[in-house]
């Protein structure tokens, strides 16, 4: 059964690594729904968060291949239920729409969104949440006309009580020490 999985990859911060990671998806004709990369809690180690809609067996195999990439330290996969995750969306609307009625203001309050910048011409609204929530706000705001809209890739954190990052780094240190 196809469902959403969140793949987390810890890697060295090297040029070309993004390509080396994504070709593993391309080769299996697996679509990436969203992808976020940035530095992790450990300096020099990047963290990829990749969302796919796939069968678990295929996800498991691609994660196995990702771990083979020399610069990848560790790759995991989780279901949505196993993680707390967020996306961020920005909406640009004409400032006039806020003057014309209080409906936009009410939408912003109801959605728990916030206003980032107001100029004479436009206002930028920010909302974090799941895709359905940011989409819902987009559709609501769009009744008044949204000039520009952008949504980020997903960031996610496990529900595990233990931080896996330190656990696997310890495990790796042990393995590396055995090589000597």
């Amino acid at each position: 059964m196809r469902q959403e999985f969140i793949i987390t990859i810890y890697s060295e911060n090297h040029i070309g690594l993004l390509n080396r990671i994504t070709i593993n998806f391309t080769r299996r004709k697996m679509n990436i729904e969203s992808l976020t990369v940035s530095e992790s809690a450990i300096k020099g180690i990047s963290k990829f968060t990749i969302v796919v809609r796939e069968e678990e067996d295929r996800v498991k195999k691609v994660v196995g291949q990702l771990e083979k990439v020399v610069e990848v330290l560790k790759a995991f996969y989780h279901t949505n239920d196993e993680m707390v995750f967020q996306e961020i969306a920005l909406y640009k609307v004409q400032t006039d729409t806020l003057y014309d009625s209080d409906q936009v203001e009410r939408l912003v309050r109801k959605a728990g969104a916030r206003i980032l910048e107001i100029t004479r011409e436009y206002t930028v609204i920010e909302k974090t949440g799941h895709k359905e929530e940011t989409q819902e706000l987009f559709e609501a705001l769009n009744q008044f006309g949204v000039l520009q809209f952008i949504r980020s890739g997903r960031v996610a954190i496990t529900r595990d009580p233990i931080e896996r990052l330190s656990e696997f780094l310890m495990e790796r240190d042990n393995l590396l020490n055995q090589i000597d």
Partner: peptide
Amino acid sequence: CKKIRSYIPEHQ
């Protein structure tokens, strides 16, 4: 080169 931080050539 004897080891690379991100690479475990074989498991025990």
